[in-house]
Design a protein around this nucleic acid. Structure first.
Lengths: 360, 360
DNA sequence: CAATCAGGTGAATCGACTC
DNA sequence: AGAGTCGATTCACCTGATT
C-alpha cells in the first residue's frame, strides 16, 4: 500500500498489515494489544496451580519470549509508520505492560508519561488474596527525545477545571448503553470506554489528524476519532469484530467544528513584537513602564526598546536586568499607569491581535 | 555471612552484600533502587526559581543495558535470599519501572499487584509540556506462583473504611517535619514517606518478621519496621546516609501490639470537573447551555470549556463573563433545556459522582 | 492569639524559532 | 548546527513572619 485507506478497517494480522503501510504517515497510534496472547492458560489458572514446577518454568520462559517477539514486531512497525512528531499510546495491565514498556524504550521510543486509568468501578478481588486490581496503565510516548509532539495542554487543563491534568485519570469502565452487544451478549470482552479515548485523542492530536489502531476490536478508537473530527485507520484480525465496529462507527455523527474546538495555548497565537505597539501609536515613545511593585521603571524608546539609567534592550532583557534574573517575560512584567491602575502591556498586545485577526 | 545481622545497616554495594547473605532468610524485601532519570539542563519554575533536581552520582548509568545488568543482578540475589513464601516490593517511575518489571518476570517472580502511589502534592509540570507526573509505581511480587505469601487482607480493609484496599493509594509526598535534614538541607534527595512503608509492611508481613532493604538510604524502611515491631536489615553504600538512618531509627519507639493496627484514612468527596461530563457523553460537545432567565447562552466544546460569541473558558469563568460579575458558580448557573424544562448541570454532576464514589 | 500572607519546595527524562 | 532571543509556564502543602 502506498497510501493510507482513511476511515476504514483493514482485516488481517497487524504485523503484516502495518508492514504494508507507508513510512511516517500517521499522527497518532492507540494500541490495546492482547495482554497475554501466547501465554495459554496463565490467565485462567488459579494461584494454587498443580502444574509441575519445572515444566511451568520452561513454559513461562518460552511464552514470555514469544510475547516479547510479537510485541517488538508490531511496535517496531508502528515506529516506522508514525510521523516523526507523532505519538503512540499503549494500554495494558501488570501482566504485559512492563514488557511493552521495556520494548518501547529498546526500540527508541521516548516515554512522555505513564498514565494510570483508575477504574471507578473495578471488579472486586473475590478471594481476598490481593489488593483490588483497580487500574490499568497507559504509556504515552514520542518517536524520539527530539520530537515536537502535539500536546493540547490548555485543553487538558480546561477538562480539569483549570488545573493541570495529572497522570492519574479516574474514569468508569465501559458498561451500560455504551457497551456494544450482539444478541444480548457483549460483542467484545475488553471494550474500552469512550471517555478514555476522548481524553487521549483530545490531548495528543488535532482535527483532521490520522489515528491508527492496530488492535481495533469493537472500534472505540474509530468511534471517538470520527466524533472528534479525526480520521481513523483500523486493523483487526477477526471479521466479526470488524462488522461490529463498522456498524457502531456508522451511527456516530461528527461534532461540528465549533464543538470540536478546544482551548488553545498562547504559544499558538501570532507573535506581536512590542515595537509594533509603538508603531501603531498604542504605546507612545517616552512612556514610563513600571513593574507591579513599582520598584522598577523603564522608558519606551521609538524603536520599541526600553531604557533604564544604565541599560537598554528588549522588554524581556530589561525586565531580567532590573530583576537580576536570568529571564523575564516582559509582557506580563511591565505595566502602564492608567487612571491610577496598573495595566500590563500584555493587554495592549491582545488589542493588536484582535485588529490583526479582524483584518485577516 | 551465615546468619543475618538483625536491625543493622551493612555498608557496601547491595549486589555484593546480598551475595553474602544466607538463602531463604528474609520475609519481605522493600527496594527503592535508582530510577536512572535522564534529566537535561536545569529546570526553572515560572517565577524563575531553580528546581533542585536529583543529580546524585548513584542515579547515573551509562546505558539502558548497564541499568538492566545492575537490576537483574540485585533482583536475582534477592530471589535467593527471600524465603519461599516471602514477597518483594520495588518502587519506581516510568523511567525504570518497566525494565524492573520485565526483569522480575524473567527471573521467575510472580507479580501479585502493581500499586500506584498517587501523590497528593506532586511537583507540577512547569513548562506545560506533559501531564503532571503525579504518581509512582510499586510492584509487589512473590517468589513463585505457588507461594503462600502473607497478605493481611482484613488489616488493609480496615485501613480503607471497610472497603477492599485498591491498587491505587493516595498519599502525600515526604515533606515537613518528616523530611530528614542535616544542616538545614534535605539529607537524601528521594526520601519516601513513612505512610507508604507503613501500608506495604502492614499488608505483607507480620510482627517479628525480617524486612530487608537493599537501598536503605535515609532509612524509612527501618524506621517503620521498628515502629511496627518487625526486624530490619539495611544495605547502603554511602556512609553519610547510614549515619542519618541510624540516628533516625534510634529515635523511633516501637508501638505496642495493640497500637499497630490503628490507622485511618480519610475520604473526601471527589471533585468532578465539568470536562468529565463531556468525556462521559453525558453532556455532548455543541450543547447550548442557558441561564435560568434564558438571557445568556454558551456552547460546550470538546474539552469541557464554554464558548460565547466573544470569549471562552470554564463554566465558572463564562458565567461570570456574561453576568459581568467577578465570580459565578457555573454548576448552578448553567442549565440544559430538556423537554421544555431547564435542568442545572449540577444535576448531571451528581450522576457522575455516584459512578465514581467507589473509587475515592 | 488567630488569621493572613509571603516564600519555599518536591524522583522532572519540562521550548520554539531565527539567523 | 550552534548561539541568541522571544516569551510561556505551577499545585499542594509547609514554615515563618506579619497583621
Amino acid at each position: 500500500m502506498d497510501h493510507l485507506p482513511l476511515d476504514r478497517v483493514i482485516e488481517g494480522d497487524c504485523r503484516q498489515i502495518l508492514a504494508s503501510l507507508p513510512d511516517r504517515s500517521v499522527d497518532m497510534i492507540f494500541a490495546d494489544p492482547p495482554y497475554n496472547l501466547q501465554l495459554g492458560g496463565e490467565l485462567t489458572r488459579p494461584d494454587n496451580s498443580k502444574v509441575d514446577a519445572v515444566t511451568d518454568a520452561w513454559d513461562k520462559f518460552a511464552s514470555l519470549a514469544d510475547y516479547d517477539a510479537f510485541t517488538r514486531a508490531w511496535l517496531a512497525e508502528c515506529h516506522r509508520v508514525l510521523k516523526d512528531d507523532g505519538t503512540l499510546w499503549v494500554i495494558g495491565s501488570y501482566h504485559n505492560i512492563f514488557r511493552v514498556g521495556a520494548a518501547l524504550q529498546d526500540i527508541g521510543y521516548w516515554i512522555l508519561n505513564d498514565i494510570v486509568w483508575r477504574k471507578a468501578n473495578p471488579m472486586p478481588n473475590f478471594k481476598g488474596t490481593r489488593f483490588t486490581n483497580a487500574h490499568e496503565t497507559l504509556i504515552w510516548c514520542a518517536k524520539s527525545p527530539e520530537a515536537r509532539y502535539t500536546f493540547n495542554y490548555d485543553a487538558m487543563k480546561a477538562l480539569n477545571e483549570d488545573l493541570q491534568m495529572r497522570s492519574d485519570w479516574l474514569l468508569p469502565i465501559c458498561s451500560g448503553g455504551e457497551r456494544v452487544k450482539t444478541d444480548g451478549q457483549k460483542a467484545h470482552s475488553t471494550q474500552k470506554p469512550e471517555a478514555l479515548l476522548h481524553r487521549a485523542i483530545l490531548a495528543a492530536s488535532n482535527p483532521g489528524d490520522v489515528i491508527l489502531d492496530p488492535f481495533f476490536g469493537s472500534g472505540t478508537t474509530g468511534a471517538v476519532a470520527k466524533r472528534l473530527g479525526r480520521h481513523f485507520v483500523g486493523i483487526e484480525r477477526e471479521p466479526r469484530y470488524i462488522r461490529v465496529a463498522l456498524e457502531r462507527i456508522g451511527a456516530v455523527t461528527p461534532l461540528d467544528a465549533k464543538a470540536q474546538a478546544v482551548t488553545t495555548s498562547r504559544k499558538a497565537e501570532p507573535r506581536v513584537p512590542f515595537g509594533s505597539l509603538v508603531e501603531a501609536g498604542i504605546v507612545q515613545p517616552g512612556t514610563v513602564l513600571v513593574d507591579p511593585s513599582r520598584r522598577h521603571s523603564a522608558r519606551v524608546r521609538a524603536d520599541g526598546s526600553l531604557a533604564t539609567r544604565d541599560a537598554s534592550g528588549s522588554i524581556h532583557q530589561i525586565g531580567a536586568h532590573v530583576l537580576g534574573a536570568p529571564a523575564c517575560n516582559g509582557w506580563t512584567f511591565w505595566h502602564v499607569e492608567h487612571k491610577g491602575q496598573l495595566v500590563p502591556i500584555d493587554a495592549f498586545r491582545q488589542q493588536v491581535r484582535a485588529q490583526m485577526s479582524a483584518a485577516a
